Structure formats: structure tokens, C-alpha cells
Computed example of a mutant assay.
Amino acid sequence: CIISIIHMCMLTVGPPENIEVTPGEGSLIIRFSSPFDIADASTAFFWYYVHYWEKGGLQQARACPFRSNSISLDNLKPFRVYCLQVQAQLLWNKSNIFRLGHLSNTSCYETMADASTELQQVILISVGTFSLLSVLAGACFFLVLKYRGLIKYWFHTPPSIPLQIEEYLKDPTQPILEVLDKDSSPKDDVWDSVSIISFPEKEQEDVLQTL
């Protein structure tokens, strides 16, 4: 019996093996296997601890001891990176002797967003996009008002060459005056018509008296 107790006290317990971590919505689900198999589960068993902390932070937390080979760390911040280590503790039922095992290697994982966080992101993206479009529309309107003369000049149709000049450019041997007079039809002079109305002397006197 004494030899058995000495053997248990000198036993080295390694860290849990085959650690797998699945990120969830504000949580981390951890699965692992025991450091070694126990032949008689009625004589000894393992307790497990998980030490975790936010990457870059100083405060470290430890989950309550548990006997299962899996645990879920809940109520974590979404989109944050958490680092963790798993530790096993071997306990003997009859002698109340325990051996604390080594910590596993540190591994870090990023949590996922929950439903409320995703909704907040959608709202923020929508508001940001609308604000950006409003600013761009206002800037374009201001530029149009400021440089409307230049814009009008850019989009203005360039003046066309008269047909007479264009024909002259095609055939420079023609006299320019003849080209300009070509296809020009003489216009009739416009005269104002004047009507002369004469009144008898008696009617003129009546008109003057009326005035």
C-alpha cells in the first residue's frame, strides 16, 4: 500500500491530448482526450480545467473543474481572439490524493458574431453607405454649380463650317467670292406701303371739333 501511494505521488500527469476548438457565436467549444487511460475508473478519475484570456489582455479566467471531455466557454465577446490552455488533474477516490497535470500548449481562436452583432453590422454598413453616397452627391452638385460654365463649354457642340467654305476647302481653285455667292438667291426689296386718306374740308372740321 505504501509503495502504491509513493507511486501515485511520483506519477507525472501530462496535458490533455487531441485538443480541438470550434468557434461559435460568442463562444468556444473545446473537445479533447485524457492524458492516458485509467484501467479502473472506480479508483481514480480526471478533473479538467480551462485557462483562457482575451489576446493582448492581462486578466486570465479559469473555468470551473469538470469531468467531461468537452466544454463550451460562453458569454465571450464576438470577433475577439481568445487564447486558452487545458489542464488535467488526477484524483484517487480512496486516498484523497491528487496530482495536477501540465498545461497544454497555448492556442488562440477568434469567436464568431451572434445575431445581434450581425444586425448591428448590417445597420452600420447601410448607414455608412448612405452617408457616403450623400456626401458624393453633394460634392458633385457643388462642382457642377461651380464649374457649370466650363462643363457647358465641354459639352457644347462645336460650330459647323458653312457649306460654301467647305466647298472652297475641297476645291481651293475657285474664287472665294464666287463660292460665297454660289447658291445665293436674290431677295426682293421690301417696301413699306403707305396709304393716303383724304377727307373733305367739312369732315376735317368735324374731326377737329371732336378732338
Rank of each mutant, 00 (worst) to 15 (best):
E118V: 10
P200M: 10
L169I: 13
V144T: 08
L133W: 02
D74Y: 08
S198R: 15
L143Y: 09
K202F: 11
A139V: 05
I6H: 04
E166V: 05
L211P: 03
A137L: 10
I125E: 14
Q60G: 08
P78T: 04
N69E: 12
Y168W: 15
K146T: 08
F98R: 09
C9H: 09
I125C: 05
T12F: 07
A61C: 11
S134W: 04
G101Y: 12
M112D: 04
V81G: 11
L180E: 05
S116R: 11
T106Y: 00
N96A: 00
V50S: 06
R62Y: 01
L103K: 10
K77R: 12
K146A: 07
Q85I: 09
F130E: 15
Y109I: 06
F155M: 09
K77D: 09
V194R: 13
E166M: 14
L58G: 01
L91T: 05
L145S: 06
S193Y: 03
D188I: 04
I5E: 09
S131R: 07
S131V: 04
F79H: 13
S126L: 12
V122T: 06
G56S: 13
V122P: 02
A88K: 05
I5N: 07
Q121A: 03
D74F: 03
I151E: 06
S72E: 15
V81M: 14
L124F: 15
D74C: 09
G101R: 02
D114K: 00
L145N: 11
Y109V: 11
D192T: 14
G149R: 08
A88W: 05
T129E: 09
Q209Y: 05
H156S: 15
L136E: 02
I5R: 09
F141H: 07
S134T: 12
C108D: 03
L133M: 12
D171S: 06
I161S: 02
L136I: 11
L91H: 02
G101T: 10
S95H: 00
F79E: 07
T43Y: 10
S126Q: 15
N69V: 02
S34C: 07
V179W: 13
V127Q: 14
L169Q: 04
P35H: 08
A113S: 02
L143V: 02
A39Y: 03
D74S: 10
L150T: 13
A41K: 13
L91K: 07
K55V: 00
I19Q: 05
S160M: 11
M112Y: 04
H51A: 06
P35T: 00
R148E: 08
T210G: 00
S126N: 10
P16L: 03
H51Q: 13
